[in-house]
Computed example of a mutant assay.
Amino acid sequence: MFLERVCIATDGSDLAVRAAQMGVVLARGGAGRIVAVAVAQPRFSMPEAAGGALAAGSAAVDAAADEASLARREFERVRRAARAHLDTVDRIARAGGVACDGVAPLASSPGPEILRVAQAHGCDLIVMGAHGPNDANRSFAGSVAQYVLANSPIPVLLLRDPREAAPPDFAEPAA
Rank of each mutant, 00 (worst) to 15 (best):
A81N: 04
L106K: 10
G23S: 10
R163D: 15
R33K: 15
P47K: 08
S45V: 12
A38F: 10
G51M: 11
S109L: 12
A130F: 01
V89W: 12
P105N: 03
R5L: 00
R163I: 04
M128Q: 06
V103P: 03
G51R: 14
G122C: 10
N151D: 11
T10W: 08
G102R: 00
S152H: 06
L86H: 04
F170L: 15
V148M: 09
A81V: 15
A9E: 08
A118W: 02
R163P: 06
D135G: 13
G96Q: 06
D62G: 02
Q146R: 15
V6Q: 05
G122L: 07
A84D: 14
F75Q: 06
V35S: 01
G96L: 11
R28H: 13
D87M: 02
A150S: 13
R138E: 13
I154C: 09
A31E: 15
V144L: 06
R43Y: 13
G12C: 05
G132K: 03
R33W: 02
A145Q: 05
A49W: 15
G132M: 07
A95K: 11
A171G: 13
A27G: 08
V78S: 07
R5F: 07
A53W: 10
D87S: 12
E164W: 05
E113A: 12
A120H: 06
E113D: 09
V98T: 09
E76H: 08
G111Q: 03
A175P: 09
A136C: 01
A136Y: 13
G97T: 04
A171I: 10
I34S: 03
A38M: 03
M128W: 02
R73H: 12
Y147K: 01
P47D: 06
S58F: 11
E67N: 08
A19F: 07
D90T: 14
A150W: 01
A99E: 15
P162N: 12
A40C: 11
G129K: 04
A64E: 11
